[in-house]
Simulated assay, not measured.
Amino acid sequence: MNTQQMRNDWGAQRPAYGHRPAPRRRGRRVLVLVLLALVLFPLVFGGWLWFRVDSSINRIGAFPDYSGRPAAGSGANWLIVGSDSREGLDPDTAESLHVGEADGGRTDTIMIAHVPDNDTPPTLISIPRDSEVPVPGQGRTKINAAFAIGGPELLAQTVEQATGLRIDHYAEVGFGGFAGMVDAVGGVEMCLDQEMHDTKTGQTLQAGCQTLDGEKALTFVRMRYSDATPRSDLDRVANQRKFIGALVEQASSFSTLINPFRTYSLADEGASSLTMLEPDGTGDLLSLAWAMRGISSDGVVTTTVPVTDSSANRWDKEKASELFEAVGSDQPIRQDLITE
């Protein structure tokens, strides 16, 4: 083989000038790593957040059994309480939220959320806090007193005996936690038909569509001394259900779920201010939120316990009994039993 032929053969085997296979392989590896990160990050973040929430929730023991306690019915019943406890609020924060001062804890909000086992729509029922019902050991008095005297346990027993529904789960949040969750999702949009001015606190919300931050949201759900709330507590509980629906919708929106900072802030604010039963966990809470997500779109039946007049002190016994019987058996609720 002559010298020229050897040179030609060597040249044929030599890679063409500028050909670099290594960078191409490196590029594919980078792409694979990016794809893995996109898949694994939500899983890792979600798992960590799940643990964070579950370990941050305040717990109380399971509700004790007692003689005559209602048997478990169809579906699951949540007792949801918004307390007016100022615990954890520094003086400046309490002043900014316009919550005043009060010792101990009372209930600003009492609701029963029913999650059915069948395809009947979920139900959210407001119980006016001035409802006069038998409170064990206290005679007949306002239901709000049950929480003030005996906390969640006595309130749950009072609700069970008054409604005939067994309470399976419990969720309680205070003033600061509620405002914090609203701020965590960037505020909640509400449309007000007219100006709302509270003659007791002096707070005012303008008419029209607007985004309420935590402070204004707390004003909205607590207001009952206003020309815009002529039915007092009945209008207030209706506004509470309306706002909860908008809050759940905002919290479960795509813009919130894809934002890890907002998701973390919401979970952190909610968990640290939430009180639940010892056996309940994050999965139970998500199940409730998922069931209640249809409030704004009429996918959830929302109502107040039927009462005899606008004072909301006395229940309409016949209608209330029919309402709770339908709820406890996962039956559709008649329209005449629904009170806005």
Score class of each variant (00 low, 15 high):
288 L>T: 03
170 Y>K: 05
324 F>E: 08
176 G>N: 04
222 R>S: 04
175 F>M: 15
225 Y>I: 00
190 M>E: 13
298 D>A: 14
276 M>W: 06
206 Q>Y: 05
202 G>E: 10
29 R>V: 12
192 L>K: 13
84 D>C: 00
91 P>V: 08
155 L>Q: 08
333 I>D: 03
177 G>M: 08
312 A>M: 02
1 M>V: 12
339 T>Y: 13
157 Q>T: 13
323 L>K: 03
21 P>Q: 10
238 A>P: 00
282 T>M: 14
1 M>L: 10
46 G>H: 12
207 A>V: 09
35 L>H: 05
139 G>C: 04
214 G>P: 02
314 R>K: 11
165 L>G: 03
12 A>C: 11
187 G>A: 09
59 R>E: 02
35 L>I: 14
5 Q>W: 02
276 M>H: 02
289 A>W: 11
142 K>A: 09
305 V>G: 07
95 E>W: 01
25 R>A: 15
122 P>W: 04
230 P>D: 07
95 E>H: 07
226 S>Y: 10
179 A>F: 01
225 Y>D: 15
46 G>V: 04
308 T>Q: 11
280 D>I: 01
37 A>R: 02
73 G>D: 00
153 E>I: 05
80 I>M: 14
153 E>F: 10
160 E>V: 01
299 G>W: 09
320 A>S: 15
15 P>W: 06
169 H>C: 08
50 W>I: 01
159 V>W: 02
92 D>Y: 11
214 G>S: 11
268 D>Q: 00
204 T>Y: 04
310 S>A: 10
263 T>Q: 10
43 L>P: 02
277 L>G: 09
140 R>G: 00
39 V>F: 12
321 S>I: 04
324 F>I: 07
31 L>E: 06
55 S>Y: 08
63 F>N: 04
212 L>Q: 04
4 Q>A: 15
148 A>R: 13
154 L>H: 07
260 P>H: 00
296 S>K: 14
212 L>M: 15
250 Q>F: 01
142 K>G: 08
176 G>M: 01
2 N>I: 11
254 F>M: 05
154 L>V: 05
246 A>W: 06
17 Y>I: 11
183 D>A: 12
127 I>V: 13
